[in-house]
């Protein structure tokens, strides 16, 4: 069943009108081409207008849209010969982060991706997209393997955040993320990260120490959810849109701040309106960025990754 967000209704209404008109013209054998064309134009204009005028909070909702393509969908659409590898060799195989060798445009890569479920059963399996420590440890194991065999790494991220659970703390989720942050700086291969939906705080960052960090147009990347921020600062749920705006978490804000290097455009209305095109656009961006890094030496890749993060931060001296 299709799920629509409130601000999508004007589009949905027009689409339904067009479908109805189409059906009418068929059953009654009348030519309504002119009316249809007008409606199509109106639809395109409405989509553009709505899409370009979205608030930060609406963008967050789009990033969380239940019909949005998830990293596993992009793996299927973009890569070939995906060979998944399991487990952190210590405790478990966390299904919230998967990874393995694959081919992108004929070249081998290690792809690592967070997972979200489409239904309750899947969501229980992937813990609603929130990884346990084992997910981060598996990811690092696979990154080190890729590093050893000179294979570029691609991380696809769409997670509300690492899991705030009792067992996660007992097995040191903070340490697991910290180790990933440090060790990703050691990698000698190109690392390209793409936030395809939610970039939820440390849980996203734990896979995001790349030479290049991309974000899809409707994705967000934030230190805290707008809900969490609103609760802490204003103790009010109706402050959520205000918090989303204040956090500067949209792709355009992040590009301005230098936190992401590139915005991957999405089809008008968002990736869920045209998943095929969205996948194509992401594929192009990943290929371009890998090509950009292909000629660089181990040392250059490491030094540039360090510098990329080293310069992030704003303060006044003295």
């Amino acid at each position: 069943m299709a799920v629509h967000l409130e601000f999508e209704y004007p589009i949905i209404e027009l689409e339904e009108k067009i479908v109805a008109l189409h059906r009418y013209s068929k059953t009654h054998a009348v030519d309504l081409a002119q009316g249809m064309e007008l409606l199509e134009q109106q639809l395109a204009a409405t989509r553009e207008k709505l899409f370009s005028g979205l608030t930060a909070w609406e963008k967050v909702q789009l990033a969380r849209h239940p019909q949005r393509p998830y990293p596993q969908d992009y793996i299927q659409a973009i890569f070939s010969d995906y060979l998944e590898l399991h487990g952190d060799r210590t405790y478990a195989d966390d299904h919230a982060i998967v990874g393995g060798f694959a081919k992108l445009n004929g070249r081998k890569v290690m792809v690592i991706a967070t997972q979200k479920g489409r239904n309750l059963k899947q969501n229980i399996d992937v813990n609603f997209g929130s990884a346990q420590p084992e997910g981060y440890r598996k990811a690092l194991r696979l990154m080190k393997l890729a590093d050893k065999v000179g294979c570029p790494i691609i991380c696809l991220i769409d997670t509300p955040g690492a899991y705030p659970g009792i067992a996660a703390e007992e097995r040191h989720i903070g340490e697991a993320i910290a180790i990933n942050l440090r060790e990703m700086f050691r990698l000698k291969v190109p690392v390209v990260c793409a936030i395809t939906g939610e970039g939820g705080s440390g849980g996203a960052l734990g896979l995001c120490v790349g030479n290049r960090v991309l974000i899809m147009q409707c994705g967000y990347y934030s230190v805290i959810t707008p809900e969490g921020c609103a609760a802490i600062l204003w103790r009010a749920t109706d402050a959520v849109p205000k918090a989303a705006d204040a956090l500067k978490l949209t792709s355009t804000d992040l590009l301005k701040l230098g936190i992401v290097d590139e915005i991957v455009p999405e089809p008008v209305g968002g990736a869920h309106r045209d998943p095929k095109t969205a996948a194509q656009l992401l594929r192009d961006a990943l290929c371009n960025n890998l090509a950009m890094l292909a000629a660089k030496s181990d040392d250059e890749l490491r030094a540039e990754r360090y510098e990329r993060f080293r310069k992030l931060g704003q303060f006044s001296e003295g």
Binding site: I177, L181, G202, V209, Y221, V223, L257, Q314
Partner: peptide, 11 residues
């Protein structure tokens, strides 16, 4: 400081 504060973890 939004995501800039997040980046300090990596830095």
């Amino acid at each position: 400081e939004g995501a800039l504060s997040l980046m300090q973890m990596a830095k």
